[in-house]
Structures are given as structure tokens and as C-alpha cells.
């Protein structure tokens, strides 16, 4: 016995559909022959890309009218599940993905499995792997109850692989009335502009943390990132302090990055930060505390003051032209 159908929640991005959505579609299609995508804010223009990664159908929720997307799509899934139930449902660990998974789980009385970093097949069962304690320990889990399991999967756990499928069939579904959950509405959206490569796609990421001491010092991070054609990132400590927007955050609650080089400046290496950057091919850390945990995973660690090292590093790279 094996799994025959998986539903995947897909989210829009500037380029059509988010790269994490495609990772999940690829993962699902390597497990089950039928993969149906449920999205919002996307139309037939993404059918080809989705099909290419293995989705057979795209069901797009329309008529959201300001309703939070996760809530709306969960409602569409719940209405459709009777008679058409999949074997598993995948969500990315994004704000919308978590909302959708949580709503659906409570609506259908199905358990949800979060922080998934890998999925393995064991006969008719799926075994999920979870990184705990900052990625030091892997826990494997299984659902014991009947019904489709809901999985919330961390970005970059799987690779998005086009395999040349036909365009996914396209279907629109109006969300209609979704009850009290639909009373929370977006009245205005603010997009924080960023230039340069996207944080979760950049080949080089330079991140700053509380060790920078003050907001002005973050300029060094931006400058270095730019010189290396990379993206600037941050620890939660300085996002919370309001130095940089949340979209810069790397870690458990922020972005997962897997660049070729990650440079951590004035970041201690809390487990919640490491879980978001441990997958980098090469890690460089600059921290004045020789005992900072970040050094345990760094390929190159420099014990010293970011205010002394970064200006020299920037100058040296500039002078190389």
C-alpha cells in the first residue's frame, strides 16, 4: 500500500508561486501520484510551473475580500474534503501556512505535525522527521489516528525539481461565507522594500545580531552583503529591537537559508537562530566571545569585535575591486 493523493497549500510570490510551495509540490509528487495544489492569489499563469513540479490540479481560492489567506484556504479545503479526502496535507511553516494548518486541524479534528524537516515512507504510513534542540537531535514521528495527516514543513527541507509534467488543471473556488473566522480582515498591506537578491535565495547571506550594538552599525552588514552580491539578514534580537524588519529574520520563526556562504556578525548562535542557517555550505562567524555557540558550527570563526573587523574587511574587498 502506498499513498495515492496529497494536497499542498501553495502561496504566491512576485515570480508567481513561492519557491517553498514548489519544494512541497516536488516532495508530495515523489510520494504520491496525485498532487493537488490549493492556493490563493494565483491564477492559471502558474499552472505550467506547478504541473512541471508534479501537481495535477490547482484549486485557487477567490473572493477573499480581505480575509486572511490561511483562514480562507482552510475553509475551502474543509468543505471539499468529504468524499475527496487526500492521504496527507502539506503546508509550509509560513504565517499563512501555520494559520491554515491550525484552522483545518481544529475544524476536522485532525492532528497536526509541525517543524517537519523530512518525510519518509514506511508502507502506507508517512514518518516525519523533526529537528529539535537547534537541529542537534532528529525526532521521527507518526500519526496514530485515522484521516489525512496535516504536516507543517520547514522551508528548504526538500528540493524543488521540475520533472516536465503537463500544466496542472485549473479550477477556481469562491470562498463564500466562512463564518466568524472570516471576520478578521486586512484593511491595508505594507510591503517593505528591499533591494538585491532575496534572503532565502541569495548565494551569500551576511547577518547581524545584537553584537552590532546599535542600529547604525547595521549599515556595515548591508554594505558587506552588497559587495558580495548577497542579502542582509538578522537575528531576532535586532528585529525585535526594531532595527530591521521581520522579513530579514533568519531562524525558527523567520526564514530558512541555505546559501553557499553565511556570515554571522555579532550573533551568539541561539538554537532558534541556528536551525535557520545550519544548512549553509560554509559558515563564517565573527563574535567577541570565544565561547559563543555559533563557533561550534562555523567553518571559520574570528574572535573579535565586529566594529574593528567589518570596516577592514569591507575596505579589503573594495580594494580588490
Amino acid at each position: 500500500m502506498s499513498l495515492s493523493k496529497i494536497w499542498v497549500f501553495v502561496e504566491p510570490s512576485e515570480s508567481g508561486v513561492s519557491s517553498t510551495s514548489l519544494e512541497l509540490i516536488s516532495a508530495a509528487s515523489s510520494i504520491a501520484p496525485l498532487v493537488e495544489a490549493f492556493g490563493y492569489g494565483v491564477g492559471p499563469e502558474v499552472s505550467q510551473t506547478l504541473g512541471d513540479h508534479g501537481a495535477t490540479k490547482l484549486i485557487a481560492a477567490t473572493g477573499l475580500d480581505g480575509v486572511l489567506a490561511g483562514t480562507a484556504v482552510a475553509s475551502v479545503m474543509a468543505k471539499r474534503i468529504a468524499g475527496d479526502a487526500p492521504d496527507a496535507i502539506f503546508f509550509a511553516a509560513t504565517p499563512e501556512g501555520r494559520d491554515a494548518a491550525a484552522r483545518l486541524s481544529a475544524k476536522l479534528d485532525l492532528p497536526v505535525c509541525t517543524n517537519v524537516v523530512n518525510l519518509l515512507q514506511d508502507g502506507a504510513d508517512l514518518v516525519s522527521e523533526h529537528a529539535v534542540f537547534g537541529g542537534a537531535v532528529i525526532v521521527s514521528a507518526k500519526f496514530t489516528s485515522a484521516g489525512p495527516g496535516i504536516y507543517v514543513i520547514r522551508a528548504k527541507s526538500f528540493t524543488a525539481e521540475p520533472k516536465g509534467g503537463a500544466a496542472a488543471a485549473f479550477e477556481e473556488v469562491n470562498v463564500g461565507d466562512i463564518g466568524s473566522a472570516g471576520k478578521a480582515k486586512i484593511v491595508q498591506s505594507h510591503v517593505e522594500a528591499r533591494s538585491g537578491p532575496k534572503l532565502d535565495e541569495a548565494p551569500v547571506v551576511v547577518s547581524g545580531g545584537r553584537g552590532l550594538g546599535q542600529q547604525e552599525s547595521y549599515q556595515m552588514i548591508e554594505e558587506l552583503a552588497k559587495l558580495l552580491n548577497g542579502a542582509p539578514g538578522a537575528s531576532r534580537a535586532i528585529v525585535d529591537a526594531g532595527w530591521v524588519p521581520y522579513s530579514y529574520q533568519v531562524g525558527q520563526t523567520g526564514k530558512t537559508v541555505k546559501p553557499s556562504v553565511y556570515i554571522a556578525c555579532g550573533i551568539s548562535g541561539a538554537t532558534q537562530h541556528m536551525v535557520g542557517m545550519k544548512g549553509a555550505k560554509n559558515i563564517i562567524a565573527i563574535n567577541k566571545d570565544a565561547d559563543a555557540p555559533i563557533f561550534t558550527i562555523a567553518d571559520l570563526g574570528i574572535v573579535g569585535d565586529v566594529h574593528k573587523i567589518l570596516p577592514k574587511l569591507i575596505e579589503a574587498i573594495k580594494s580588490k575591486g
Binding site: T94, K185, I186, V187, Q188, H190
Partner: peptide
């Protein structure tokens, strides 16, 4: 949100 923030009323 992933790209900034939304003002939500409820």
C-alpha cells in the same frame, strides 16, 4: 507578513 506587515481589523 513574509514581505512586510498587514493592518488587520476584527
Amino acid at each position: 507578513t513574509e514581505s512586510g506587515y498587514d493592518e488587520v481589523e476584527c
